[in-house]
């Protein structure tokens, strides 16, 4: 029996070959092996969305995915949203302009769900945003400011 497996995965545009324990989740591996701690751990049952990352274009809860499952896949985490020189993308800018982050702990997950939504639906309605981000709990309950930010980012992208 092999406790670890070598996987090839593209994380934020960089190809990586990682030896991962087969029973560790993508969340564990991102935080502990890859050193990307922007992805957060909270409920570990797929309810809070703090660990949301984008895998092959879709937002997923990285706490419910074994790291071995991303072998051959492309993963984007919150660290992958800004440009390499640190310039923020329109969604991140809008989050700051609208006051979306309060404590900030849920924000990486909110951003990833929002980015996935905008990638798929560039002109979302308020209801689309509420639905698209319903899997991301915010206990500061900045939902209205988060929604406003997503809509504002969509507006910027349209121009």
């Amino acid at each position: 029996m092999r406790d670890t497996l070598s996987i090839e995965v593209k994380v934020n545009g960089i190809d990586r070959s990682i030896e991962v324990p087969v029973h560790h989740t993508l969340l564990d591996v991102l935080r502990e092996e890859v050193g990307l701690t922007g992805t957060k751990e909270c409920c570990v049952v797929g309810e809070c969305g703090a660990c949301t990352v984008i895998v092959d274009g879709r937002p997923i809860n990285s706490c419910l995915m074994l790291a071995v499952e991303v072998d051959g896949a492309e993963v984007t985490t919150v660290e992958g949203l800004a440009a390499e020189d640190g310039r923020l993308n329109p969604l991140q800018e809008a989050f700051l302009d609208k006051g979306a982050p309060q404590c900030g702990f849920c924000i990486p997950g909110q951003l990833m769900s929002a980015q996935a939504l905008l990638d798929k639906k560039p002109n979302p309605t308020v209801d689309d945003v509420h639905e698209g981000l319903a899997g991301n709990l915010c206990r500061c309950a900045g939902y209205q400011q988060i929604t406003a930010a997503v809509l504002a980012a969509a507006e910027v992208e349209r121009q």
């Binding site: 797929g46 949301t52 809860n61 319903a134 899997g135």
Partner: peptide, 9 residues
């Protein structure tokens, strides 16, 4: 079924 993230899996 769950959230967008759950439905993607």
């Amino acid at each position: 079924v769950g959230s967008v993230q759950i439905r993607a899996r």
